[in-house]
């Protein structure tokens, strides 16, 4: 209920800052899909493209190729090409895949991008040192970045 009010207020005032973000531990899966937007703010596909192709952000390109970002050098081959995923999967399914692909593909090598618990020997970023106990764990992508990526994935259709 509280969330509904917060969302409604956000819509009324048009303020993103007031929308309540669903934290990683409270994301609800329906099978491997996540129906509810993580922010209540529609994703921006252009931002999503940037997140996916930037090494310090989503870095999806290290494992996935796609025609739409063929201009970005060095496409990975670890995951399938993403052409047409906007047709193959619904928005809720794509959100679920980005949040935690292990719900759809058991044992996949694709990392969970919106998850903060249950890791083995969690490090402090790429330092190789242990993640400090008293430091909150940040998910690989923020809630809005996930929404932006999902919005971009929805644009990857064959009939462009």
């Amino acid at each position: 209920m509280k969330r509904m009010i917060a969302l409604a207020t956000a819509c009324l005032t048009g303020s993103v800052a007031m929308a309540e973000v669903v934290p990683p531990s409270e994301v609800t899966f329906d099978g491997y899909a996540v129906e509810q937007s993580l922010t209540g703010t529609p994703g921006n596909p252009e931002e999503g493209r940037k997140v996916m192709t930037t090494k310090s952000m989503g870095n999806c390109v290290s494992c996935h190729a796609a025609e739409d970002y063929a201009d970005v050098p060095f496409h990975g081959e670890v995951g399938p090409p993403l052409d047409g995923v906007g047709e193959r999967w619904s928005e809720a399914e794509l959100r679920g895949l980005v949040v935690n692909a292990k719900m759809a593909f058991e044992g996949t090598v694709m990392p969970a991008f919106y998850k903060t618990e249950g890791f083995n020997r969690l490090g402090d970023g790429f330092t190789g040192k242990a993640h400090p106990e008293d430091k909150p764990v940040e998910p690989l992508l923020t809630a809005q970045e996930v929404e932006d990526v999902v919005a971009y994935l929805k644009t990857l259709t064959y009939d462009e």
């Binding site: 390109v61 290290s62 494992c63 050098p73 060095f74 496409h75 990975g76 081959e77 670890v78 090598v109």
Partner: peptide, 10 residues
């Protein structure tokens, strides 16, 4: 083991 032969970025 699962991905040798594949490119991971460059």
């Amino acid at each position: 083991e699962e991905n040798y032969g594949n490119m991971i970025r460059a």
